[in-house]
Design a binder for these strands. Structure first.
Length: 814
RNA sequence: GCGAGAGUGGCGGAAUGGCAGACGCGCCGGACUUAGGAUCCGGUGCCGCAAGGCGUGGGGGUUCAAAUCCCCCCUCUCGCACCA
């Protein structure tokens, strides 16, 4: 063992040695309990990993290593979410082929993770852009199609006429194209593929109750799904009884107060019902609404506007004709694109009615008998008034009564509406997973023919030029050899789908692939999946709260329904790591020049010191700003451990007979460290280790003894794997410390014999008593009343009341 | 605007109703030293010589006891954009 701790010397050595020993290879072993820890697989970018990424990977590595030592068979894999826009943009702008850049960037990520000491089983590395992987993404798409969960529909996409291509939301900046910054984007309607995630809305909602996820994430999913109960009703258009306006409401009890209707400007009825006299103003409003939606997020606090169509609807409850308006605050994408206006009970309707001088009937009164406020809507539940057969009913009863009446008279029914919409999974992009569909020219039903499984994968063709097709189709439309094919059924001429799948398709099942990453007969080997899945601990950023985590949950449920797997939730336990901002408080980014790389920190301090600082600088799940100054502290800590072990070894590694006090401290340190690692409290786990070190370094080697020395190094192993390995060898062991068992503590030895009991008088601490642990209230009281400090502060007053908290505190009220 | 989270020494943070500031950074002092940006030892919330008092964004409340629970306000961060 060298005198000085020199990470530059030991880290490369052990890296090579671990690789030679294939130390992190994982195999199924039914005899041992399994633990599957997974980080959300990263998109390999050219910027490489920053120290911010390691704030996720290092703690997960600690958990993986710890669980392995604690007796679990641990699966801790890594792969690359490799399809995506940045690689395609680089291809477009710099002519670099995405598969080359992605391969290079992934290799760099892997190198950075390796030098950081992360124990991944690299034999299970996957890449979502490799045909061996996306073959099965395509297979899943076909599964969804066969189950009626994938369908074609029309959707509007951002469009730049100068690029001749669709744009992602992030490519639209201030309403203009990212490349043509003074060219306003428009919307283009395209036929696209959708996934019917709405069929799973209720299950996605209900099953949230049974999983261990951060509450804010669950809440975001609940809000995203946005379930609301109500009724769908319909009113006929006056003088045009073949046409009706269907609408959803959560307050069917207020139908007698409906004094107008509002349609979304895009509503298909608008053109048909508009009266000739109003046509000009309606068309102008519709055009204006369309233009406004094109100029991104111009004004978020604008007033409610609308125009009258000149048409009327017949309120079947009041038998009155009510005006039909259009307004841009009604969205075509939610509900039916039409709402009833009940201005007395809805604040938004109230503002609209006030502005345009519409009638404001009051049909709900406060339950306490006071009149509804005159200057605003009364939105709370109450007692129904002015409402025919509903008068006197509570809001809840009136809702039921309206639903029953509507069903009997065939004008509506109770229903549930969801805010969540179906998942638009088509992308008009090159660098994605091809959709395994062909369109046969000789067939009806749009000629949709799924590619037979045995013909998968549909390979993404190599291209030289990634210019957009100009038509709204993906660049793949420019490759005739790809597009033109034959129908798998009739053999006649057919064209391939040229859209590719959203990257979220790849990430909706990758956690299963790690169980059997090289299996080539199915997406996964059922036996391996049954052993490893579900994921025991899933870790990633809160930014994936809704999309990725909902899609992956839905696909898992589809797999369960298809009897491919035996579980319904892929991630029973989820945690979010805290975001690490740059020292300047901004996102770390190449353009700001504030990226700190692990490479630079490892060069300066060594990987172990960096790892310890990642663990120590802040709680795992809380955001923090990067601050390099503390690494000096973790580096110094490692040096002190090193010196302690070196002195111990140089003294001949004496077996020693530690004092009871030392023994108790070791066991207590072990207990706290263990408990805190289990709870993912790495910063306080390390603090407990430092505390223990501060005690142990005061001892001579034979006072410390072999048990303490070895337990200490073993405990350090998950956090600082290189230094621990080197010290373990110096302690005379031939095999790796990472194959050792986690040391067990003796609970008896972690018990305190004496405790400090605080004495408070009227809420202020006046004395501290050392008493035997478990002392009775009487004993402590007696002791306290003898105390000089207590008597001085009691100042002759008689205690009125004592409150005793065992082993902690005696509170005296005087 | 709505929703979620956060606010504690000079700094990162600890304490989840029971000793505020664990552990570390920085700083101050000392030892060793030709030397120290190394190492080791001690100190370090604020006021005060002390006894003691004050102190967890601000204000109020509950409690024997509040950083922690409740109400109001301020600031910051993240998410969502009129969801009928």
């Amino acid at each position: 063992m060298d005198e000085r701790y020199d990470p530059k010397k030991i880290e490369p050595y052990w890296q090579a040695e671990w690789q030679r020993q294939d130390l992190y290879r994982t195999r199924e072993d039914p005899a041992r309990p399994k633990f599957y820890v997974l980080e959300m697989f990263p998109y390999p970018s050219g910027a490489g990993l920053s120290v911010g990424h390691l704030h996720n990977y290092v703690p997960c590595d600690v958990i993986g290593r710890y669980k392995r030592m604690a007796g679990f068979n641990v699966l801790h894999p890594m792969g690359w979410d490799a399809f995506g826009l940045p690689a395609e943009n680089e291809a477009l702008l710099r002519g670099l082929h995405p598969s080359e850049t992605v391969t290079r960037y992934a290799a760099n990520f892997k190198r950075q993770l390796t030098i950081s000491g992360c124990a991944y089983d690299w034999s299970r590395e996957i890449n979502s852009s490799s045909p061996e992987y996306y073959e099965w993404t395509q297979w899943f798409f076909l599964l969804l199609y066969k189950r009626g969960l994938a369908y074609r529909g029309t959707g509007a996409q951002w469009w730049c006429d100068l690029c001749g291509s669709v744009l992602a939301n992030e490519q639209v900046i201030n309403g203009c194209c990212w490349r043509h910054t003074d060219n306003p984007v428009t919307k283009k309607d395209l036929e696209q593929w959708y996934i019917k995630i709405t069929d799973y809305a209720d299950r996605l909602l209900e099953d949230l109750d049974a999983i261990d996820w951060p509450e804010p994430i669950k809440l975001m999913q609940r809000n995203w799904i946005g379930r609301s109960e109500g009724a769908e009703l319909s009113f006929p258009v006056a003088n045009n009884p073949t046409r009706e306006i269907r609408f959803f409401t959560t307050r069917p009890d207020t139908v007698f107060g409906v004094s107008f209707m509002v349609l979304a400007p895009e509503h298909p009825l608008v053109a048909e019902i508009t009266a000739p006299a109003e046509r000009a103003s309606v068309e102008a409003y519709v055009a204006d609404a369309r233009r406004q939606s094109e100029i991104e997020r111009m004004s978020t606090v604008k007033e409610k506007t609308g125009v009258f169509t000149g048409a009327y609807a017949h309120n079947v409850f009041t038998n009155k004709d009510i005006p039909i308006w259009i307004a841009d605050y009604v969205l075509m994408g939610y509900g039916t694109g039409a709402i009833m206006g009940a201005p007395g009970q809805d604040q938004r309707d109230f503002e609209f009615a006030t502005r345009y001088g519409l009638e404001i009937p009051r049909v709900t009164a406060p339950a306490d008998g006071t009149p509804p406020p005159a200057d605003r809507a009364f939105v709370d539940p109450g007692i129904t008034i002015n409402s025919g057969f509903l008068i006197g009913m509570t809001t809840a009863d009136a809702i039921n009564a309206v639903c029953r009446w509507a069903e009997q008279h065939k004008v509506g029914r109770p229903t549930i509406s969801y805010r969540m919409r179906d998942w638009l999974i088509s992308r008009q992009r090159y660098w994605g997973c091809p959709i395994p569909i062909v369109y046969c020219k000789g067939k009806g039903n749009d000629g949709i023919v799924p590619v037979p499984e045995e013909q998968l994968p549909v390979l993404l063709p190599a291209m030289k030029d990634y210019q957009p097709s100009g038509t709204g189709r993906s660049p793949l439309a420019n490759v005739p050899e790809f597009v033109n094919t034959t129908c798998p059924i009739c053999g006649g001429p057919a064209e391939r789908e040229t859209d590719t799948l959203d990257g979220f398709a790849c990430s909706s099942w990758y956690f299963l692939r790690f169980a059997s990453p090289h299996y080539d007969r199915a997406p996964f080997d059922r036996r391996a999946a049954d052993y490893w899945l579900p994921v025991d601990l899933y870790v990633g950023g809160a930014e994936h709260a809704v999309m990725h985590l909902l899609y992956a949950r839905m696909w898992t449920k589809v797999m369960f329904d298809s009897e491919l797997i035996g579980f319904q939730e892929p991630f029973p336990m989820l945690r979010n790591q805290g975001q690490v901002w740059a020292a300047d408080g901004h996102r770390m980014s190449k353009s700001r020049g504030n990226v700190v790389t692990p490479d630079a920190m490892i060069e300066k301090y060594g990987a172990d010191a960096l790892r310890l600082w990642e663990l120590f600088m802040s709680p795992f799940d809380e955001a923090t700003n990067w601050n390099e100054s503390g690494i000096a502290g973790t580096e110094r800590y490692l040096m002190r451990v090193w010196t302690m072990i070196r002195r111990f070894v140089e003294a001949g590694s004496p077996a020693g007979a530690p004092s009871l006090d030392t023994l108790k401290r070791v066991h207590k340190g072990l207990r706290i460290t263990t408990e805190h690692i289990e709870r993912l409290r790495f910063n306080t786990a390390l603090a407990a280790m430092m505390d223990l070190l501060n005690h142990l370094t005061k001892l001579k080697p034979d006072e410390m003894g072999r048990f303490a020395a070895e337990a200490y190094v073993t405990m350090l192993a998950p956090m600082a794997p290189y230094a621990a390995e080197e010290m373990w060898r110096a302690l005379g062991h031939a095999s790796s410390v990472h194959l050792e068992s986690w040391p067990q503590y003796d609970a008896e030895l972690t018990r305190e014999e004496t405790v400090t009991v605080v004495v408070q008088i009227n809420g202020k601490v006046r004395d501290r008593l050392q008493v035997a642990s478990g002392a009775s209230e009487e004993q402590v009281r007696e002791l306290a009343l003898k105390s000089e400090a207590v008597n001085r502060h009691l100042d002759g007053k008689t205690p009125k009341k004592f409150i005793y908290v065992q082993d902690k505190m005696l509170s005296i009220v005087a």
